[in-house]
Design a protein around this nucleic acid. Structure first.
Length: 342
DNA sequence: AATTAAGTCAACCGCGGCAAA
DNA sequence: ATTTGCCGCGGTTGACTTAAT
């Protein structure tokens, strides 16, 4: 029936691997590589199915595995990626060198889900479970529901701040970003807090769709802008109806910033706006979502896209890196294509 | 100290996608 | 065009460990 034959074979060992079995498998693959997994156990002298061998290698024996507990940054990244990718564990694992999809899945199911719930965040939707979220320190006070504003849940070190807001889905929730590697999703009028600083995400009416956040000059180390949004440094965002999505990493707290006028003059109606380090830049993009991996534009397989990015980058100033991904402007559910490949 | 509950983790299972036959 | 076999993925299980009573 086209099913894996090992499922039906008898006399094959199952369950935990013995050190002797590990040794056999490790020695064989180190010497010959795995090749066709179904032939590995026979060649290596193991009473296992190929599938079991593959799993053991990938999840345990592989030499490039990082062992030990997950760091706070890793946990934050997983939460962040899960918000975009959902239960696509292998894609999440691809962003965490040395970690397997299995252990990330285990971490999520046994630990991270619970942590999010404790913060009042639905681990499935990454939205608030309740309308009102209160923090633990005295500065965080409940916010009236009618204000549609929400306090940020701050936890741990100063570099770890989580923010969530409700989503009224009126296409005006413009911005998600990271405050210390934690993703947040800010909605118009939301009250946000990072550390002890509190600001308000303010939508401006009018044709230029200008938005900004007053956060006492608190730097945002990274950000994600939803389709239809733009974001620039110094916590000022711009919105244009046809703009795409960007994910930014590292600091972009200073540097040149594209203006609304520049935007219009350059006809970036179908463009994406980037900020990174000391540079913000835009580029024209097609309808395909794509990923630039390893924080390196040079690694991108689409050379025309790369040169386009490069030229736009030069136009605005300096080389940029750390672009993680973006989605086309017409993508209503960017998470469906996050970290996809052309 | 014994028992139970909760948490963690490795491994299994079945499915879908894909390519070769 | 259909069948077959393999790979990789994600959900789930169950053994084991740790914490709580």
């Amino acid at each position: 029936m086209g099913r894996h034959s090992c499922c039906y074979k008898q006399k094959l060992r199952k369950g935990l691997w013995s050190p002797e079995e590990d040794e056999k498998l490790l020695r064989y693959i180190t010497k010959f590589g795995h090749g066709c997994w179904s032939s590995v156990p026979k060649q290596a002298g193991l009473q296992r199915c190929g599938k079991s061998c593959r799993l053991r290698w990938i999840n345990y024996l592989r030499p490039d595995l990082k062992r030990g507990a997950f760091s706070q940054d890793e946990e934050n990244l997983i939460i962040e990626l899960h918000a975009v990718l959902g239960n696509r564990w292998s894609q999440i694992a691809a962003q965490l060198p040395g970690r397997t999809d299995n252990e990330i899945k285990n971490l999520w199911n046994s630990c991270l889900k619970k942590k999010l719930r404790q913060r009042g965040i639905d681990p499935v939707t990454h939205k608030l479970l309740t309308d009102i979220e209160t923090g633990t320190d005295d500065k965080t006070k409940p916010v009236e529901k009618s204000q549609q504003s929400y306090l940020v849940d701050t936890e741990g070190s100063s570099s770890t701040t989580t923010c969530s807001t409700n989503q009224n889905n009126n296409n005006d929730h413009l911005y998600t970003g990271n405050f210390g590697f934690q993703r947040l999703s800010i909605e118009n009028g939301s009250r946000i807090q990072t550390g002890s600083d509190v600001g308000i995400w303010i939508p401006q009416t009018g044709t230029n769709h200008h938005h900004h956040v007053d956060m006492s000059n608190e730097a945002i180390p990274s950000a994600v802008v939803l389709p239809g949004s733009m974001f620039s440094s110094s916590l000022t965002g711009y919105r244009s109806s046809n703009l795409g999505l960007i994910e930014l990493e590292n600091s972009f707290s200073t540097g040149p910033m594209i203006t609304e006028q520049q935007l219009q003059e350059n006809n970036y109606n179908n463009s994406t706006f980037f900020g990174n380090g000391n540079v913000n830049w835009g580029l024209t993009m097609d309808d395909n979502p794509f990923t630039i991996s390893n924080n390196s534009l040079q690694n991108h397989s689409n050379s025309s896209l790369y040169s386009e990015i490069k030229s736009e980058t030069n136009f605005f100033g300096t080389e940029t890196t750390n672009v993680v991904g973006m989605w086309p402007c017409n993508q209503l559910q960017p998470q469906q294509h996050a970290y996809g490949h052309i």
